[in-house]
């Protein structure tokens, strides 16, 4: 049984609607491929992490990586 976080799902749906509206404008204005790719990469990574959070499968967070690196090099105990 998956423990869904419906609040996170609602938040993602709201932002996806805003992003689709933005993307329409980007395509209409014929923005450069660089802009489109950057936009899609940021949105896709947000959606991927957001969906995992909504499904209750929290991936290892950047703060945990950073803390691990600091522990490895002995900056923090």
């Amino acid at each position: 049984m998956i423990d869904m976080n419906y609040n996170m799902l609602i938040v993602l749906v709201v932002f996806t609607v805003l992003v689709i509206y933005d993307l329409q404008k980007l395509i209409k204005n014929k923005d450069s491929i660089k802009v489109l790719i950057s936009y899609i990469v940021i949105v896709a990574s947000s959606l991927a992490v957001g969906l995992l959070l909504a499904l209750g499968k929290r991936p290892v967070s950047p703060s945990e990586w950073i803390e691990w690196i600091f522990k490895m090099i002995g900056v923090v105990k």
Binding site: V19, D22, L26, I42, V43
Partner: peptide, 8 residues
């Protein structure tokens, strides 16, 4: 153009 995606 980037505000929404960065805030998201």
């Amino acid at each position: 153009k980037f505000t929404t995606c960065i805030v998201m």
